[in-house]
Design a binder for these strands. Structure first.
Lengths: 140, 140
DNA sequence: CTAAGTGCTATAGCCGCTATAGGAGCAAGT
DNA sequence: ACTTGCTCCTATAGCGGCTATAGCACTTAG
């Protein structure tokens, strides 16, 4: 079974080459073996690991959370309570962001629909930005 | 009318002191006069300007967009088309983010409800992260 | 044998702040 | 007058999570 180059691993995992090196530097990815000419040589498990990381990143988990999740993967017999906690916290964060963004969306829409598209002088967009009291939602 | 200190301006605008200095450095806020002892002295308009910036930041506009919006405020007779464009672009960005986050929310919820809260070995959270194919939504 | 491609390291930059260090000045209490 | 504590000043570094650049070594295809 031939060793995989960083380029091949990048290709199959969907993680870019410099990002892989970055993950190695911050200790998220195991330091691989090196060839005679000092190139990184990966086994196929590196691809799995990177896919795991990529998927977690796509779901918005930060590096520290991913570090913990990977650590847990190494202890399959342990309770997965902590994984649940991490995922729940992430869910709460996502829900909070959605709520905030939805409020912003409303305000942006109102700004835009109220604007009569004339002059800056009486542009509703500019007015609303200048005067927070013009917002209906006091959320922010 | 006495000049306002950076602390007073920060207080009334809701923008922190170091942030005000930062905005000055990047040319977003006009350079104020200085007292004999080299302290910044603001007029009341600085508070309005900072409130504008703060509100725009809260709505997710980036610094460059705000720079343009402020520039427009200085030309009240111009058409406000550009302000509309900036706000529309921001609305599109926000809508896109909401959509993505909603997809993530769904996946996180599925991860959590499928987990039987036992061992890491068969933890649905970990499994899902490891294998993207377990996602129903292929959005990401 | 050459040229393109891939790999390597080290370092700087991105955004929008925030924190830290090290100093000067001002206001109020003793 | 003195001290204490607050605000102010500058300059610089750090945050997260990469991404870009420079300058070199090596490999592979034609």
């Amino acid at each position: 079974m031939p060793a995989l180059s960083i380029g091949q691993v990048a290709e199959s995992s969907g993680v870019k080459v410099p990002t892989i090196r970055y993950y190695e530097r911050i200790g998220l990815l195991a330091v691989p073996a090196r060839s005679a000419s000092n190139r990184r040589e990966y086994g196929p498990d590196a691809i799995q690991r990177l896919r795991f990381i990529r998927h977690a990143r796509e779901l918005g988990f930060d590096i520290e959370a991913i570090r913990t999740l990977i650590e847990m993967q190494h202890h399959p017999a342990q309770s997965c309570e902590q994984a649940d906690e991490i995922a729940s916290a992430q869910l709460a964060t996502v829900e909070d962001r959605i709520q905030r963004l939805t409020a912003l969306k409303g305000e942006l829409e109102r700004m835009l629909t109220c604007c009569r598209h004339e002059r800056v002088r009486n542009c509703r967009v500019i007015e609303t930005l200048a005067d927070h009291d013009k917002c209906l939602h006091e959320a922010h």
